[in-house]
């Protein structure tokens, strides 16, 4: 057991080292002068100049040899010091918290929204389709899902902005200072996700409804509703 743990720890360290090294090599092999690019990010279009780039290179020690920079990067990494942003000067951990928190909130809420849409729609389509393979409802949902999924997400976002922000004036167009600002992006992402997942759930439902155990449950005397709730629903939800 101990041996396995040691092996895993070694693997994790090797992984951290190789990712760190790769990042260093890739960043350095980007075309163009790094100092100039950092100066452009920091001081903006109108103030980027050779003197600003020189100041940046001096401040960050970019004139040092590649090996020296690599070793200091590795030393920082070993002490879990992610350093500060080259452009804003803020600690990287703050930048990550700031940017990542929005991403996580959006992703989490989008998954919830997509589940709220996909489960009822998928299950209902599945039941309809099991009863009638040419169900209009199922075909309409399929067509609509295909339409949604074939849109790039930003296109769907624009359509929703036109409806809910411009025409109805219910929701803001852009911004990030409150819950109300998350509604449109969450619905956009959620709809796009639900377009696929409702089809997956629909297929699972269909195969559960055609399965032997579901028929057996009905034969043993359960009402279609109970047979579905006790036997088909759990398997169709868990299958994927």
């Amino acid at each position: 057991m101990k041996k396995i743990l040691y092996q895993r720890l070694l693997q994790a360290l090797l992984m951290a080292w190789s990712v760190g090294t790769l990042t260093f090599v890739l960043t350095r092999s980007l075309p163009g002068d790094m100092a100039y690019k950092i100066a452009a990010g920091r001081y903006g279009d109108d103030a980027v100049s050779s003197s600003a780039a020189k100041a940046v290179a001096e401040e960050l020690g970019l004139h040092k040899s590649g090996l020296e920079q690599y070793l200091s990067w590795m030393a920082d990494l070993a002490t879990l010091d992610l350093g500060t942003s080259l452009v804003t000067g803020a600690p990287i951990i703050y930048e990550l918290q700031n940017q990542l928190s929005y991403t996580l909130v959006l992703a989490g809420l989008a998954i919830i929204v997509s589940a709220l849409i996909a489960f009822p729609l998928g299950i209902y389509s599945g039941i309809k389709s099991a009863n009638n393979p040419h169900s209009t409802f199922d075909h309409s949902v399929l067509a609509f899902s295909t339409f949604l999924r074939s849109q790039p997400v930003f296109c769907l976002g624009l359509i929703l902005i036109f409806i809910f922000a411009l025409e109805l004036n219910w929701l803001p167009v852009a911004g990030s200072s409150g819950f109300v600002y998350t509604i449109l992006p969450v619905i956009t992402l959620g709809l796009s996700l639900a377009a696929i997942s409702n089809r997956v759930i629909r297929n699972s439902t269909v195969s559960a409804l055609h399965s032997g155990y579901f028929h057996f449950a009905k034969i043993k005397g359960l009402s279609p509703f109970h047979a579905f709730r006790r036997h088909a629903l759990p398997t169709s939800s868990c299958r994927h």
Binding site: G32, D33, Y36, K37, A40, D46, V48
Partner: peptide, 27 residues
């Protein structure tokens, strides 16, 4: 199409031939 810094850096290393830019005279 380059990063905006390609203009000062192309000027410094002499590789620039022509560049299209929006010059701010309010600085």
């Amino acid at each position: 199409m380059e990063n905006v810094s390609a203009i000062p850096s192309g000027h410094a290393d002499g590789t620039l031939e022509t560049a299209l830019m929006a010059r701010n005279f309010a600085n």
